[in-house]
Write a protein that binds this DNA or RNA. Sequence first.
DNA 1: GCACGGACGGAGAGCGCTCTCCACCTCGTG
DNA 2: CACGAGGTGGAGAGCGCTCTCCGTCCGTGC
Lengths: 350, 350
Amino acid sequence: MSTDLPPAQGTPTLEDVARVAGVSRATVSRVINGIRNVAPEIQETVQQAIATTGYVPNRAARSLVTRRTGSVALVVSGAGGDAGGEPFESQVFADPFFGRVAGGAVAFLRPRGIHPVLMFAETAHARDQVIGYLRQGSADGALLVSTHGEDPLPRLIVEAGLPAVLWARPARPTPISYVDLSHRAGAELAADRLVARGCRRVATISGPFDVRASQDRLSGFQDAMARYGHPYIPGVEGNFTHDSGEAGMHRLLAEHPDIDGVFAANDLMAQGALLALRERGRVVPDDVAVIGFDDSSAATASRPQLTTVRQPVEDMAGEMARLLLAHIEDSDFQVTSVIFPPSLVVRQSA
Amino acid sequence: MSTDLPPAQGTPTLEDVARVAGVSRATVSRVINGIRNVAPEIQETVQQAIATTGYVPNRAARSLVTRRTGSVALVVSGAGGDAGGEPFESQVFADPFFGRVAGGAVAFLRPRGIHPVLMFAETAHARDQVIGYLRQGSADGALLVSTHGEDPLPRLIVEAGLPAVLWARPARPTPISYVDLSHRAGAELAADRLVARGCRRVATISGPFDVRASQDRLSGFQDAMARYGHPYIPGVEGNFTHDSGEAGMHRLLAEHPDIDGVFAANDLMAQGALLALRERGRVVPDDVAVIGFDDSSAATASRPQLTTVRQPVEDMAGEMARLLLAHIEDSDFQVTSVIFPPSLVVRQSA
DNA sequence: GCACGGACGGAGAGCGCTCTCCACCTCGTG
DNA sequence: CACGAGGTGGAGAGCGCTCTCCGTCCGTGC
């Protein structure tokens, strides 16, 4: 029986719904959470009461007792001290990569009613803030993307016993789950393509040597070329920027004018290389074939468009989210890693 | 006196701190929140107890009583129904613009201990989810970036009486605060520059006519040129993509081969125009000067680099955050709008 | 016909915090 | 010297929800 009492002022609570439906708070709670059997007709009555009152459960009250917030932190983390310089937030987002990560994570989390809280951790202070945030139960766990291998945050998180999943293997061994790409396999894909095109004198523009992924891309490429009978691959070191790619290509051409293929460790550098090649009058891909890495927006903005190694970033981010939820649900969930295979996106440059 | 009792298991609570410090819960709360006078020596004792217990206030418990969460939603919103198509999340982040907005908002919010929750609202269902999220008190308000003028979300938010601030003026009048750019002033800057360079036969590649900002950029440019004695400005309509800029430029050149200046409504289209011009053998900026809009990463990736109108996106996003906090603190805060002036970033293309 | 078990709804105890009283103590003042 | 004002700390009532008990009721089997 619905005893129509005057509606309470303010936002309705469970109590109000219970009164309208003529049942107890507990029953309404059961209906909402779908736990245990509640007689169908009572369920119906309760649903109706919820509709008429416009009831929405209060998140804070619920988390207080369940010890779950239904949100996770998405942390972009650097390795700096408390130095100045350009605002970290703007640097981070200059790279659409983070957007893809966010998009991939959201695609997985959203259907589950979970939303990511955006955080940055580039200074010691900011790191403490992140840890504090997690410790005070504002989020159930963290998805962590480090821009630098020496990032201390993973260790701090492990020490605090907080659930978290990393993007990419941490530089120093840490008992924490992560998702990564097989950079070596990606480099092999590039080597296969260049060789298949008939390139005989290929060179590389690598990323910084102190970045793990750079090393893997370089050595993977060298090893694959060695298997094809090319033991020596000229190379220059770039720093993942457009300009370093352009400069690197000029250097390469100066020392090895007969180059007919280039593997750049990311698209930005490949784009720079394209520019240098044009300046030197080389036609891509006829004179020199170029392959990038990442399949970023630079790949399609370049002319010719870049053939490039694609990381399934969105899928990888989704997997991070999946692992994080597993860790949150089950604190005994084993620390694990998932390595994704890259694919080659063939466009015009090779 | 600190009566050293055995530490409770699990995370310490106010109660635990109080026991260790030998005071009441209320006093600890006062010290933490800095309210009313507490004798300095007791403050000291309490601080020490907090340190030794490693106490962190529980967010849920606090919000339950304060009715504040200390977080805001950052909503990227479309106008679609429940149609399929490419995942909205990936589309959104293909554009680094959203990253800049997020960065600007975070720069303002973070020092205040507030973190944004990332949400998307491209379908009716997703919109309900956002409203529900806000209504259940998961966030204190929303920063809203609509990708489409007809977005129904602003209205829904107003109806629900939730604090929110929009990016850009809503298409239909809505009593809600917003931050916008003076697109007309930006177009004038471009006109001034082209005229100052001596261009006499300028044309435009505009954005879609059904987007308010496109209209303003176009009419602002036309009006400014009219003041300079150029009553007729040829133009084509693009859709803000690289390809539409390229195609548009080809059309423009076909119909008006003597063009010596182009104003494109965004950088991506300007970049496309650059490509078309090169194909037709026109030298930029000597034969044809090109000006873009947005100062996006495309502006610096192009060769020559683009002269472009810059929106102070980060500042604008920061202002959104400021307004939102004002609305949250004071529900009587007047609905307002803040219009930012653009600036011209001169590079090589004009 | 009666006991027993299972299905179902209600009562009530918290979750950890804030904040309003209220009691107390110490001054200052008439 | 008494009294009031003002500064300080404590007690306790919730905030809205979940979840464990527990009681009730009905159906079933011997």
